[in-house]
Design a protein around this nucleic acid. Structure first.
Length: 86
DNA sequence: TAGTTGACCGGAA
DNA sequence: ATTCCGGCCAACT
């Protein structure tokens, strides 16, 4: 049995390029539709480049924080991938 | 075991 | 549209 955080990491890693997922969506796929907060907690603790955490955004389409680069960098990256304002 | 914290979400003012 | 408040979950102390 994989832990919730493990599922979240796996799901986020499976997010295709040019596509963004909200914390709530990821939480729902992880098995807990209301665990959006826990998803954010996992992202904060996780520092793996293999996980496109920048493709995970808030339900408002904005971002609350980022580990490296900053929010502006994250948004820029999404636009560059065509996931935002394509 | 219990209390606190935080990359959240939805509704109300 | 912006700001405030309560609620859910997992991890940390």
């Amino acid at each position: 049995m994989k832990s919730f955080s493990d599922k979240v990491r796996d799901i986020v890693r499976k997010i295709p390029k040019g596509r963004t997922m909200t914390y709530k969506e990821v939480a729902r796929k992880a098995g807990n539709p209301n665990a959006a907060r826990a998803v954010g907690a996992v992202m904060r603790m996780n520092y793996d480049e293999s996980i496109p955490c920048h493709r995970v955004i808030a339900s408002d389409g904005g971002m609350r924080g980022y580990n490296r680069g900053g929010e502006a960098r994250k948004r820029q990256r999404l636009i560059e991938e065509g996931a935002l304002r394509a």
